[in-house]
Design a protein around this nucleic acid. Structure first.
Lengths: 213, 213
DNA sequence: CAGAGGCTATCGATCGATCGATCGGTTCGT
DNA sequence: ACGAACCGATCGATCGATCGATAGCCTCTG
């Protein structure tokens, strides 16, 4: 089925913002990629910044929704963390354009729009914080600086969107397994099988990105 | 001592490129920050892109030089890796603007300039590759995917430039120790003291960034 | 020593191109 | 007839870059 014009605009914007950056993308680039005129563009968006903010907010909401679904009902901190890592890696590996926009273009937003995005991001990171803190509290994890370890983990996982290619030797699921094991090692846990967490996270990612928001 | 005009231009460019991105920074922004006119700007640089490329090349050369100095004569793969992590973290924590430009603005370069920068980056990453591969070969490290683990490590360390603040609770040296320990854990090694490697790396960073290129 | 010539550092004015955005339309399906 | 979808023309602003000019300083020469 053919894409609606609105979808074409959205996808063109995500791809261009991810590839050339927000300031490096002109509205004429957007119009050309979406195959409409620059004036028609404004029928589907507010300002260029509104378009960026919408893309970022929707991506973050999907990430947050997925993280909640993937950890819902999971009590063991090790499994919660493995689920978070897997979901994050799978999302960044399968949606590299969206996630790179979220990760790299926050500073292109006006202070007002930025606040909303940062609030969403903080909400997401809080899920990681509690998983790590709970694990430390019940001696499942060993780390002297939980906050620093959380940031190290998140940045490590963010990187996936910058280099992973499905045409490489590793499937995305294998990559997620590897990353989950790395994360548990960083937190002082014994090596463990993370395939279950990855499989569940994989289903969540598929569902979350199919559903319209 | 007062800064030379050329130094003022360089520092203004680094700060602005890091904060607003290359495309988000106009030459009038640069001129204002350097306290000269836009025409005088062109006495000290070629094009705006030349300025960006110069900043990136110098920063990468300093990083590469530092990595070579920090690992020179160190034979144990564990110590080599700890030295690389420490040097990378200390550089990114003490020079966040320069390193963020290097990490984020590669795509703003023309294909020709980009090739040179990528070549330098590959040269740097090769140091990490051999350290990891050597460690795997002599059973000091355990990892199923050395290339993936290397990328995970590098991205984890790159993140430091995005969030570390010297006004936080952790000193940069303490952070480097923590990161080196995380890295060794990721590679399946036992917890070990990394203070020596950090201290040596710290001296290297100071020296490398003082010396004019 | 006087002064001509050249070099470095700096500037105001301005270039053509491109920027994001808006306007007044036209073409449709309902 | 009305609104959704679309466009060509064009707005003022800003973009990166260049121009010719000036002032200060060093060096060579007669």
């Amino acid at each position: 089925m053919a894409l609606s014009t609105e979808q074409r605009v959205r996808r063109a914007a995500v791809k261009l913002f991810a590839g050339k950056g927000f300031h490096g993308t002109g509205i004429r680039d957007l119009a050309q990629a979406a195959k409409i005129s620059t004036s028609s563009l404004y029928h589907y968006m507010g300002t260029k910044e509104d378009l960026l903010a919408t893309i970022m907010r929707e991506s973050l909401e999907r990430l947050l929704l997925g993280a909640r679904q993937a950890t819902d009902g999971v009590t063991d901190p090790r499994e919660r963390l493995a689920a978070l890592v897997a979901l994050h890696v799978l999302t960044h590996g399968s949606r590299p354009a969206e996630t790179r926009v979220v990760d790299n273009e926050v500073n292109a937003l006006s202070p007002a729009a930025k606040r909303g995005i940062v609030r969403l991001r903080d909400e997401y990171e809080a899920l990681w914080s509690t998983a790590i803190d709970d694990g430390v509290a019940c001696h499942a994890f060993r780390t002297g600086e939980p906050a620093v370890t959380r940031l190290a983990l998140l940045e490590m996982c963010n990187g996936v969107a910058r280099w992973y290619s499905p045409r490489g030797p590793l499937s995305l699921d294998d990559l997620a397994v590897h990353y989950a094991q790395l994360a548990l090692r960083m937190l002082g846990g014994a090596d463990s099988d993370c395939h279950d967490a990855v499989h569940r996270a994989s289903a969540v990612v598929t569902a979350v990105w199919r559903t319209p928001l």
